[in-house]
Nucleic acid binder design. Structure first.
Length: 285
DNA sequence: CTTTTGACCTGACTGC
DNA sequence: TGCAGTCAGGTCAAAA
């Protein structure tokens, strides 16, 4: 499932293989893939034709490419199963190919958005003065952003009346963290997912942020996490970080720290994985 | 205002 | 073999 490290791998691929090229023809093969483009698929395609792509950018799990016409950007989100692939123009269509962008050059490759579950998509939006597409103004900086404000994050945690994992997944507080890296960072921090955010001391917040950054950096160095063929990077290669996970998906397997069998608990229509010995639940629960 | 819940979506898997 | 049920989960609109 693409979280920040996987999306950053895709951003780098786009910067290398798409930035600087010009769209010649765009095909929208599934309307849901452009549902955030309110003017519809035909408008999406028409506006992209003949437009040049600038440098690929990212905040959290969102990707965007400023367009050379000046004031707008192509925004993308991979959702659960989205892939952005640069493929030879003659390669057979993928089963879940949703959008194709052909280029006005002789390089012989095209950009494809492939997405089985169609939670992701592409759309065009005005670029705000701060450089962000206007519809993602509410997305907080991510922990790998040099301008992320640790002190402000701690203050926000103290003011919230919620629990730790909910806060980690709240993209308006900190972006780029999904279910996998939330569980990994909490395990490294020996913190329970249901601990109230208001109970965190400043040193605990600092330690947690350090682990979030470490686990994401390590995953990025290995090319992102992949659990099945659903996630593939821009060139179609899977990441290998799943071999290094300490918490996610390890129900009944021994904790890598203390050997206690790991547990899985239903949580917000998904799962939380944790060590019952290293990560003690808060008293109030 | 803050916080929580449900809808969206398809394919792999499980149990009867 | 078929079929119903479950799971995977990021985001946002709507509800509380």
């Amino acid at each position: 499932m693409p979280e920040l490290p996987e999306v950053e791998v895709v951003r780098r691929g786009l910067a290398r293989w798409v930035s600087g090229r010009t769209a010649e023809d765009v095909e929208v093969l599934h309307p849901r893939a452009v549902r955030r483009h309110l003017a519809g698929g035909e408008d999406f395609a028409a506006r992209l034709r003949g437009t040049g792509f600038g440098t690929a950018m990212r905040r959290g799990k969102y990707l965007w490419i400023p367009l050379d016409e000046g004031s707008s950007s192509l925004l993308g989100h991979l959702g659960m199963s989205g892939q952005l692939l640069v493929r030879p123009s003659g390669a057979p269509d993928e089963k879940h190919l949703r959008i194709r962008v052909r280029f006005a050059d002789g390089l012989g490759t095209e950009l494809r958005f492939v997405d089985q579950r169609t939670f992701g998509g592409l759309s065009l939006h005005e670029t705000a003065p701060d450089g962000l597409p206007d519809v993602i103004a509410h997305i907080a900086r991510d922990p790998l952003d040099p301008a992320f404000d640790d002190a402000a994050f701690h203050t926000a945690l103290r003011l919230r009346r919620t629990t730790l994992k909910r806060a980690l997944l709240d993209q308006s507080l900190i972006s780029g963290v999904g279910n996998i890296y939330a569980d990994e960072a909490l395990w490294r921090s020996r913190l329970h997912y249901e601990r109230p955010t208001a109970s965190l001391t400043r040193p605990r917040t600092t330690e947690l942020l350090g682990h979030v950054r470490d686990v994401m950096s390590e995953a990025l160095a290995q090319g992102g996490t992949s659990f099945d063929s659903l996630y593939v990077n821009v060139n179609g290669e899977s990441g290998y970080f799943d071999r290094s996970l300490d918490a996610y998906g390890r129900e009944d397997e021994p904790c890598h720290r203390c050997g206690t069998p790991m547990r899985r608990r239903p949580w917000m229509n998904r799962s939380s994985y944790f060590c019952p010995r290293c990560q003690r639940p808060p008293r109030t629960v």
